[in-house]
């Protein structure tokens, strides 16, 4: 327990509300001076005791009746109120349900029309795309055929120069008669001199000869 002096000396004032200022706190034991005290019992005469008992019993009975009456009244009122509110709320709920259904149907219709439009557009786009693709494919196929036919033409033209059994001997003779030499040389000016044994005429040699 804080002492009164400590409370007064504190920097901040502290307000303590006492139920009864002079009382000891409940958790403290009995004061030393009061330990062996036996409090006197109040003396009530028999007449008074009986009369008080009668009056108190009557009072309790009356109050019990009044309290019960008002509790029952309150319960009745509450239940009637609840039933009324529940009916009201049911009607309101039904109304709201209808409204919700209408709104829902409206939304559904709008969404359905939107969907139809969208699908039409999508279908058109798909057709266009398919046509384009088909054209592209046709074109590609044509090109391929053209390329192939060109190649065939070329091969046909080339086929005249092919070595066959008939002209094998002839060709061999021809090849032997005309040997081809793929060797060549390049000078610093980029002139190509074909053949291994080709005679090269140098310019400075020409100059020297000219000078001589």
């Amino acid at each position: 327990m804080l002492s009164q002096r400590y409370l007064l000396k504190r920097g901040l004032p502290m307000y303590i509300q006492h139920a009864e200022a002079h009382r000891k706190p409940r958790w403290l034991p009995v004061a030393k001076s009061k330990i062996y005290r036996i409090p006197k019992r109040p003396v009530v005469s028999e007449d008074e005791r009986l009369e008080l008992r009668r009056i108190n019993n009557a009072y309790n009975t009356q109050m019990r009746a009044i309290r019960r009456f008002y509790v029952e009244d309150w319960v009745r009122e509450k239940s009637s109120l609840e039933s009324a509110t529940s009916e009201m709320s049911q009607r309101l709920e039904a109304d709201e349900w209808l409204k919700c259904e209408e709104l829902n149907d409206k939304w559904n219709k709008q969404i359905a029309s939107n969907r139809e439009e969208r699908r039409k557009k999508e279908l058109e786009a798909m057709e266009e795309f398919a046509l384009l693709r088909m054209e592209a494919k046709d074109k590609a196929l044509k090109e391929r055929i053209e390329r192939a036919s060109e190649k065939i033409k070329k091969e046909k033209e080339l086929s005249t120069t092919f070595v066959t059994r008939e002209n094998l001997e002839e060709t061999i003779e021809h090849v032997l008669a005309n040997p081809i030499d793929y060797n060549f040389a390049i000078d610093s000016k980029g002139n190509i001199y074909e053949g291994r044994d080709t005679e090269i005429e140098y310019e400075d040699k020409k100059k020297v000869e000219a000078a001589n």
Binding site: D47, E48, L50, E51, R54, A58
Partner: peptide, 14 residues
């Protein structure tokens, strides 16, 4: 019968 009044006192001497 219980009433709301004081009723009949048991000890009228009071």
């Amino acid at each position: 019968q219980f009433g709301m009044g004081l009723g009949k006192p048991i000890s009228p001497s009071l």
